Simulated assay, not measured.
Amino acid sequence: MTASSRNEQTPWWHPDRHADRRPALMARSRIDAAVRLWLAERDFLIVDPPGLQRSPGNETHLHAFATEMVGKDGLGQAMYLHTSPEFTMKKLLAAGERRIASLQHVWRNRERSALHHPEFTMLEWYRVEEPYEAIIADTLALIRLAAETTGIDRFSFRGRECDPRAEAERISVAEAFMVHAGIDLLATLDAEGTADGAKLAEQMVRAGMAVPEDRAWSYLFTHILVDKVEPKLGNGRVTVLDRYPAVEAALARRVPGDRRVSERFEVYASGVELANGFGELTDATEQRTRFETEMAEKARIYGERYPLDEEFLAALAHMPEASGVALGFDRLVMLATGAQRIEAVLWAPVAE
């Protein structure tokens, strides 16, 4: 048995193993402090949304932890641990806050791997009446800040390296699909952004790809993104993958002049997805339609659906134009410390 395998079999709380883990945990604390100072210097107010919610979010492939809240009358009400503080934070924007941020735990079920953990820390922040570009610039600045805090020169994950200080690559989803997969993605969307799975399957055949049995457009899109596109992102420098198809951006507003695509971006470094941001949708009618579509697809695939947050939909009528982003704080710490598993930078992992 190697020293590494012995260490993996030792409980995380054992003094010897904790001593090995402690340098990364100390770095985590320094990054946490640096991020909070950076936000404070830019007049962001740190808020603390409750984790217990009536709706955990309404995206097809997000899975929540369910629980029951019992009232004084002894009757139970279904509740969920949130998958993001987004709904509450947007309610605060509707209430009048203008620059807010949250650095707190969120929960996602069915997720555990080198990059996933059922309970993890999310950094999420919003700017009212400021452009989408400002949030992208924030995200890149915080990635550089993490690297500067630990003094690391290059991020590295599973053999893929990235210079966090280099000028970021900016590429649209449509461009990335064409360059890395030979797929004309926009040709599979009509003028209103309605997606055609059959057309995308035809594109895959022409590009020499095997077509999965499930030919729903969203499934095929994700299959191509994961297999062909994501491995090419964030290599050498950070990549901003921009302008997602509107059908893949349930909470983002559409790009002016092209209803096929939306103001949604994701940021990758060393092949690791770090952040997901939007120019925020504030049209309650369109938001309800998108949520209902997402929940119908969730029911088709997984046999379940989550309730809509009616209070959130009502708040959208009062919410000003805004941009926001969620960043996986633990993943950023991983890259800034050279860790290869998320549990290496968690103070205490969830028991398996």
Rank of each mutant, 00 (worst) to 15 (best):
M79P: 01
S4F: 10
K199Q: 14
L142F: 00
V47M: 08
A207H: 03
G277Y: 02
T149E: 13
G279E: 03
R42G: 10
W38V: 07
S4G: 08
D330C: 02
I224D: 15
R300D: 02
R110A: 11
L81C: 04
A210H: 09
L316P: 01
Y80W: 04
T337H: 03
G151D: 11
A284R: 05
A137E: 12
V229G: 13
A174Q: 14
R290S: 03
T282V: 10
I31P: 03
T121E: 00
A252V: 07
R243T: 05
D309Y: 02
E148V: 10
L45Y: 00
T194H: 15
A24E: 02
N276D: 05
H82E: 06
D190M: 13
L313A: 11
L62E: 13
H223Y: 01
T188Q: 13
R6C: 06
G271S: 03
D20I: 11
A269T: 08
R341L: 09
H18F: 04
S5W: 05
G74Q: 09
R305A: 11
P256A: 13
G279Q: 02
V350E: 08
T88R: 14
E292S: 12
I224K: 05
L233I: 12
W12L: 07
V35C: 02
I143E: 06
D309I: 07
I342V: 15
D163G: 10
E97D: 09
S270W: 00
E286V: 09
L189E: 15
M178G: 15
V350C: 07
A101I: 00
M178W: 11
E213S: 13
P56T: 03
T337Q: 00
K228E: 15
A146V: 08
G271F: 03
L233K: 08
L39E: 07
H14C: 09
K228A: 13
S113R: 03
H18D: 07
P23K: 02
D258V: 10
F221K: 05
T188D: 12
A275K: 02
A201W: 01
H105N: 15
R259V: 05
E202K: 11
N109R: 14
R305D: 11
R160M: 09
Y302I: 13
F329V: 06
A166N: 04
W12P: 01
V345K: 04
R331K: 06
G257S: 06
V205A: 10
W107G: 02
A134T: 05
S172Q: 12
I152L: 11
R288K: 06
R170T: 06
R30C: 10
E8Q: 15
V70S: 10
I46L: 05
D16V: 08
E248F: 03
T2Y: 00
A284V: 04
F329L: 06
L45P: 03
A195N: 14
